[in-house]
Write a protein that binds this DNA or RNA. Structure first.
Lengths: 255, 255
DNA sequence: ATTGACTTTCACGTTACGTGATAGTTTACT
DNA sequence: AGTAAACTATCACGTAACGTGAAAGTCAAT
């Protein structure tokens, strides 16, 4: 009952390439091949594959798995303990990193609160909001049994998509801004289109839009040199121009 | 005050190769070079390098760091939250693996138990006695005979290594708890991490996990003064805080 | 002028495959 | 039997973040 490679792959839930790879590195070579060079896996081969996949799930490197498989009297118990120690160490390091990033986040929150002056309250509040608070409840209600981590994964998947779209939007914004700047008029159609694009871009990180917050952000752009440097890099005096366009767009200024 | 590469490397605690690499991928190129092609780093370059290393310590991939560095408008706060989510997910996966390997080890031990008669017999007996004397009754009453028996069985099969690992876990739990308590929020990531750690610690003596049992145990902690004394010794009011964290963790309470 | 410390640019090795590209083989169907 | 679909084979490059030489040129001190 020899099986060809795809059947084995499907059976074990791995890719054909994986089996090729295991053959390449001498981890699992089928004990028969047809004269055309096709790999034929025996039942025994399948058992070994199961073993391999078992260890792989426990995050053993293939090299170690090879050692274990190739010498049946290898002390599996000791190896397990050793592997667990390594995993524990790994998690310890991971925990340290998480603690550090949590501290940083706390710190950033503190900084942002200090510079808050009530004008951009809505804006900053949203920025400060913890995603856990934001989505936690809703997700819990919807998915019930699922852990917070899993829910976070879903959120992350969304935000990555959003992130791609955001980059595209930003690029479009710059192009628009450049063309609009050539008109010299922040009230021009092109400039207003740029302001609209900017709003669209914002909406990826804002949950609600308000003209006030948008106008406020525009003002902040001009005040904060990091922003001016960023926008002016693409278009000379782009920051001021964009601000004016946004002020008109939000009705805070006459064209 | 331009510096040559080795000086910069020593100053920052990285290898020369690393700086070469950062130059190669366009992450950090010195803004001056001698005519012989020597890289000369300015103060500004050093500052950027610090930034890079900061993000690197938080496990950001270099690609992301490059994006962040190149655009000041990039929302660092959101990026931090996102990165934390990824780290948390990573840790979750790691935890699953650790749990799996622990189970495997327990299983192997069960098999070995039949053939190899106890080496740490005295030690184990003492642990059992202790456990029984201290909490035996309550646990029995609340969670039934079965849980206790399997728990004891686990204790019996426990080796020195396990015991060491358990102590270590406990230590980590206290550290986490301390930090979490500082946040004041039992729903915070740190507090939830502490709850997760507590669960993991439990898994060394529980054969099966259920949210109910975990939550119940947390309640018991607060009621039983022996436990409160134990946890409060490390962190003031730590018991109540830990209970709340666990209740949220097990979904028995809203954050 | 020599030497040792330092610098440069290749370029391969690491982990566990993914992803084509190109070509030969087997199976199914008309 | 002929052909197309499905399968298989062997390269071989790409990934992340550098480590580790190798060969050759540069700089500073003796």
């Amino acid at each position: 009952m020899k099986r060809k490679i795809k059947e084995v792959a499907d059976l074990a839930g791995v890719s054909v390439r994986t089996l090729h790879h295991y053959d390449e590195i001498g981890l699992l070579s089928p004990d028969t091949t047809t004269e055309a060079g096709y790999r034929l896996y025996s039942e025994k081969n399948l058992e070994v594959l199961q073993q391999i996949l078992f260890f792989r799930e426990l995050d053993f490197p293939l090299k170690k798995i090879k050692e274990i498989i190739n010498s049946p009297d290898f002390d599996r118990y000791q190896v397990m303990l050793q592997q667990r120690d390594q995993l524990l160490e790994k998690r310890y390091r991971l925990d340290q990193i998480i603690i550090a990033i949590n501290k940083t986040i706390q710190h950033m929150k503190g900084e942002m609160e200090m510079t808050t002056e009530g004008k951009f309250e809505a804006f900053k509040e949203r920025m400060l909001e913890d995603n856990e608070q934001k989505y936690g409840k809703e997700i819990r209600e919807k998915y019930g049994e699922e852990t917070v981590e899993t829910s976070n994964a879903k959120w992350r998947g969304m935000s990555q998509q959003d992130y791609q779209a955001m980059l595209r939007l930003e690029q479009e914004l710059f192009e628009l801004l450049e063309q609009a700047y050539a008109t010299g008029d922040p009230g021009s159609d092109l400039a207003q289109a740029a302001a609209a694009k900017h709003k669209e871009w914002l909406m990826y990180s804002w949950s609600e839009y308000s003209k006030e917050a948008h106008a406020g952000l525009a003002e902040m752009y001009v005040t904060d040199e990091r922003f001016t440097a960023y926008y002016d890099k693409h278009v000379k005096d782009g920051t001021v121009f964009l601000r004016d366009a946004i002020l008109i767009y939000t009705g805070k200024k006459e064209s």
